[in-house]
Design a binder for these strands. Structure first.
Lengths: 192, 192
DNA sequence: AGCATATATATGTGTTATCATATATATGCA
DNA sequence: TGCATATATATGATAACACATATATATGCT
């Protein structure tokens, strides 16, 4: 049930339409740690209203389509506070690359190295993107909110950095070249 | 479509029933990077047969229920090789804790610290479990297969270690105590 | 004797997630 | 003029995942 709660959390910042939620939050930031498309957002809003966690008022939009502006009810605010202070289940890991490696005993080292290199490029791109966002974060908020956003972004940067370090370790053992030493952080991948 | 391919990869090791797949692979190792329950496995096997990537023979099981023993067809072997050498889409990140932190501006630091500490305990347990498995891995395989399994497990260990480092950083900024220095690896969570 | 567990497969159902399409109007650009 | 894009909501369809239950038999434990 994280999507409805995520939306509660965003509506707590300000009252919004489904369109606003998607454009201002899911397309920009939420998608990096909880993606949802338009259809999911509108259906989640319906469910929030059913639970009486949110309500909406219709604003006739002159030339534009009518806007359904959603805001939290008292129940919704209580539910949000409860959810925000209750530990959630850990995310399940589901990584196709690990499945591929697990089953790759019959694949040539060269092919494995190519697979790793291609994956590396995508993780590097992700990390670069996170760093670009990090550079402009301070212009988008301040105070505790900024602190929290930096923390969340920091998780992504840490995650991708460590994935890249692991990929480099893996690449070193499947490509002909010996592992260049000193350039990368050493990681503990062998039995202690 | 990773689950059918994962099963192709396992059937490539040896011909098996759905029950074997679950008991010997999904319950033990696959679940750490591609979980699937019994219903999903049996339905995936049906799909493999439809695609003509696998076929089965029925073994009358005397006292036990009949066994449908699945093995790869030539097409299935070709499909597996192709999949194993083709880069897959990166896993989507969907982490409830990050949603909670992103929306936690109105929550007291103490409550945030409690949330982080509870999550920390679960990630620590995961890491401990990975390390236990790592210690006994060499008894379960050898050669290239062992090398690959160590690599996959190393990914989990690296992932959880780095998540813990990030959590410690986060905890330090939300609990009263100043961050004890020197005990933890420094991570780059501030703008360069 | 009764109960849990193991072997083995099958199906029903609900929830989430993804993708596509429908509707209606306004603005800006080539 | 025409086409893409933005504003705004709604729904249909499918795939993937999760959870529960059904069936049938054997063994081992208390």
């Amino acid at each position: 049930m994280s999507l409805p709660h995520a939306i509660l959390g965003l509506l707590n910042y300000r009252a919004m339409t489904g369109y606003d939620l998607k454009r201002d939050w899911f397309d920009r930031s939420m998608r990096f740690f909880w993606p949802a498309d338009q259809a999911q957002i509108y259906r989640a809003l319906e469910r929030l209203v059913e639970h009486d966690w949110a309500s909406f008022t219709v604003e006739a939009g002159g030339d534009r389509p009518n806007r359904k502006v959603y805001s939290l009810t008292a129940d919704g605010r209580a539910e949000l506070t409860h959810w925000l202070t209750t530990p959630a289940a850990l995310p399940t890991v589901r990584d196709p690359l690990l499945v591929q490696l697990f089953c790759a005993a019959d694949i040539a080292d060269d092919d494995i190295a190519r697979l790793l290199a291609a994956t590396r490029a995508e993780h590097q791109a992700r990390l670069d993107n996170y760093r670009r966002i990090q550079a402009q974060l301070p212009t988008l908020g301040s105070g505790k909110r900024l602190q929290l956003w930096q923390l969340v972004l920091g998780n992504g940067i840490e995650r991708e950095s460590s994935y890249l370090a692991w990929l480099d370790h893996a690449l070193a053992s499947f490509s002909g070249d010996p592992e260049p030493n000193g350039s990368r952080p050493t990681i503990a991948l062998t039995t202690p």
